[in-house]
Design a protein around this nucleic acid. Sequence first.
DNA 1: CAATTCCATAGGTTTTTCCTATGGCAGGTA
DNA 2: TACCTGCCATAGGAAAAACCTATGGAATTG
Lengths: 303, 303
Amino acid sequence: MELHQLRYFVTVVEAGGFSRAAVRLHVAQPSLSQQIAKLEQELGQPLLDRLPRGVVPTEAGRRLYDRARRILAEVADATRCVADCRESLEGRLVVGAIPTIAPGLLPRLLAEFSEQHPKVDVQVVEEVTERLLQRLDEGQIDLALASTVDVQTAIHCEPLGKEPLGLLLPARHALARRRQVTWTDLQGEKALVLSELHCLARQVNEFCKTRSVRWHVWFQAAHLGTILEMVANGVGVSLVPQLFAPIANARGCRWIPLDAPRPERDINLLLHNLRYRTRATLAFAALVRRAAQRLGWMTEATK
Amino acid sequence: MELHQLRYFVTVVEAGGFSRAAVRLHVAQPSLSQQIAKLEQELGQPLLDRLPRGVVPTEAGRRLYDRARRILAEVADATRCVADCRESLEGRLVVGAIPTIAPGLLPRLLAEFSEQHPKVDVQVVEEVTERLLQRLDEGQIDLALASTVDVQTAIHCEPLGKEPLGLLLPARHALARRRQVTWTDLQGEKALVLSELHCLARQVNEFCKTRSVRWHVWFQAAHLGTILEMVANGVGVSLVPQLFAPIANARGCRWIPLDAPRPERDINLLLHNLRYRTRATLAFAALVRRAAQRLGWMTEATK
DNA sequence: CAATTCCATAGGTTTTTCCTATGGCAGGTA
DNA sequence: TACCTGCCATAGGAAAAACCTATGGAATTG
């Protein structure tokens, strides 16, 4: 058994066929047939059911598939770990963040990080929490920033504190000059909300339900950017994280904090427990923690 | 990176040199040099320090070594797991046991198991507890029987109950006709004990210390078999597990139980938590549990 | 100082992997 | 029915990888 055979096998299962897998792997289809056949011969039984339309793993294939993925992930981890013991901080760092955190927080963090560690090639993956967890688990990202998370055993979830939410208004709105607004001010406003795919949407819904605020939902947007533009054009208002205050100002909106009970969302730093943490990963995590303190997210309880 | 390169690398580290590793791997030494060089090139740094006498892993090499071993163990595990899903119960089963359990218990168990599952190739590894744990961890044995164990996180340690120890006497000894002996009977007897490598020796010492029994230690043997022969020839007496009673009888000795507080040792079944348990492994484990009940090891507390 | 041990390199051989071309099989379509 | 179409297996030759023997240099040992 060799690693390239496991790679081939995993890809064939995921692609659902030899031909499609061959395209993804940049090899000819017969090479896959050969290598899989060899693997099956070595293991003494078929791993794939050849159907007219493609292939499906057998019982043995399913067993191998799970383990092969873990093995390949560990090989990748070993590579990272070994590469990390060179003296200078270099290599690739993949940071994940949910879309309601990324645009407000990452630009500053990335700029600061790249200044300190110019040789590190930083990449950003912006996805919803569930997908971040999945990719973290697969070793595709080194660390992630998210809000509320269903903790999995293999994931280390570190609270960074609580970030306040506030009212997003057009600059000309009647409430836009206030230093603060109350929950009753929201009553009856035309609201723009996010798609329920985003955890922020679910959190906002929850807040409104418990505060018995009823507002007219006009529009369900896929991105906060869309909402920002809509609000700037006077279509309605929204409840968004403080991180978006500077962006809001720049686009002709205002962000006003809400009176007690102040709505907040958790911010968590996610790391994988079983994977090697490169020095770049640790450095970025430290940077994130400092930023969390600077932004006043750390409450007494979480400090 | 390929698995055979990892296998080569691990062997070179463990052998402490290319030449020695080449012998173990049945390949020519230059092949190793080539493959390791390739690995080093791919990882971008040296993995081994070439010293005049042999080689020693660098920092990067040490990091890779640990992970490579885990990866290879998982590959072996995957092979076992896949092989286990064929219909009939076959394959290899490696059973570990400490030397003070193996000869007394395994013959009967193995006979019974082989009768039920003739296609399974059963092997026995007889070693002291520490080595058993090590080999269990490395995936070289499927399950093990031992006494007191320093529980490691990855090892599942299942109590099978407590086995009584008793006095081993020559058949002509004055006490040999008794149905039971007391601790005071032991006082002043010439004792034959095991090497401290065996946990039984430590346990016996402990018992004697707490019961304030002082006996003359004449001989420290490496195997219970030696002690049995010495006792049979009237050199002294010993404190041995009940499992050895039938063997003792056959060799002209007698095994007499001790009065309360009856000395006992724990018997534990060890399995690896993270490894796949073949159906043969589970079948053998079930057989062991039944044997433990039949032998009356299971007390009320452990049932 | 010679003999030994150990690893690296060179050059050629064997083995493995990969590619192109082709064939068979099943499903869908005219 | 006949005819595509998509998919995988097989065959045979080309490319690549792994391996072996022979040899050389460096440090150690007797």
